[in-house]
């Protein structure tokens, strides 16, 4: 009677490795690189690769942060402003208050995590829509950044600190190493920990998660705090890279933070995709942005082209998903 067909083999390690769906996205990425190299010989120059790896460091971190929230079915559009807040708090503490960077950096990350957690608390305790709440909080945190800087630019950060933003180690930018470390930690957390399982559970069905005894509020607030903290790291690194901090720090990260994970196959409805998608999506975004410049697309066209590519990628992903669901 018993017809159990279970494929024998090693213990499953799928989420740490790349899933089947990711292969298509990586394929698209490789094709993109091939085309880029053909279009512009400078594309693979070491100078250009360094530029791209710097961009990837920042976008990779914010995409990882947003990816965590998208896996839950949530979103935080104030993530760029939170990043800016961390950078500004850090610069202010070091320059204006003479704090030791070893104290200022963790303190600024904590501020960012608290800002994220506050978003999460408002959303979960009052049962509000995360998009709407964080649009409001975007304005709050941007305003806070203006208030702290008084509209001025904070400069004169010490050299040994700005090294973290612009220096190199083992042949790669320090920022890229930081990003890779953050990414690996988040990857491990989502794939292998109790918290990661709960994250996917809540992302798939909040009701089903409650029925198996998972505290939906705790999981969501924690994820918002982690996302805020990660964004804070990116904001501090950008501040060091620019050797200054001003109110607009991190403002341009909203679009890539959402677009990258979605291009990488993380559904905005929650529970689908892996954090790998955030990284590869970020890489795709960076290459597209780079090739537009190298390919000589006029500066006024760049935004339009980037935006269109994002919409097309999202539409393709949705269509593919519908197609595979139909089978």
């Amino acid at each position: 009677m018993q017809q159990i067909a279970i494929a024998p083999g090693a213990a499953p390690r799928r989420k740490l490795r790349l899933g089947g769906q990711m292969i298509g996205i990586i394929g698209a990425f490789l094709v993109l690189i091939g085309i880029s190299a053909l279009v512009s010989p400078q594309f693979i120059s070491s100078y250009n690769l360094t530029i791209m790896s710097r961009d990837l460091a920042f976008i990779g971190i914010v995409a990882t942060a947003q990816g965590l929230l998208l896996l839950l079915g949530d979103i935080d559009v104030s993530i760029g402003a939170i990043a800016g807040l961390a950078g500004i708090v850090c610069a202010k503490m070091i320059v204006d208050m003479g704090a030791d960077p070893a104290l200022a950096i963790p303190a600024a990350i904590l501020v960012a995590a608290a800002a994220g957690a506050l978003n999460g608390l408002i959303i979960t305790l009052l049962n509000l829509n995360s998009l709407v709440v964080t649009i409001g909080m975007l304005s709050v945190y941007s305003g806070l950044n203006l208030l702290i800087t008084q509209g001025r630019t904070i400069v004169n950060l010490p050299k040994h600190v700005t090294f973290l933003g612009s220096g190199q180690a083992f042949g790669l930018p320090v920022t890229l190493w930081v990003m890779l470390a953050m990414f690996l930690v988040v990857l491990f957390v989502t794939a292998r920990t109790v918290f990661g399982r709960q994250l996917y559970a809540v992302g798939n069905s909040r009701e089903a998660a409650r029925i198996v005894g998972i505290s939906e509020v705790r999981v969501r607030v924690t994820a918002f705090a982690i996302a805020g903290g990660l964004a804070g790291v990116a904001g501090i690194l950008l501040c060091f890279r620019l050797m200054s901090a001003q109110a607009t720090l991190g403002q341009s990260w909203l679009l890539p933070s959402i677009a990258a994970p979605v291009i990488g196959g993380i559904a905005t409805t929650g529970g689908i995709g892996t954090i790998w998608g955030a990284l590869i999506g970020a890489a795709i975004m960076v290459v597209i942005g780079n090739i537009i410049v190298l390919g000589g697309v006029g500066i006024y066209l760049q935004q339009i082209v980037t935006g269109l590519i994002v919409v097309i990628a999202v539409a393709l992903d949705a269509i593919m998903r519908r197609f595979s669901a139909g089978n």
Binding site: Q198, A201, N204, A208, V212, G271
Partner: peptide, 21 residues
Amino acid sequence: KSHGIFANLPVRENVGIGLLH
């Protein structure tokens, strides 16, 4: 479908989520 299974997760993780401890 909505209050029982975690539709997009493998069978293994559906089992695991109920027995995480």
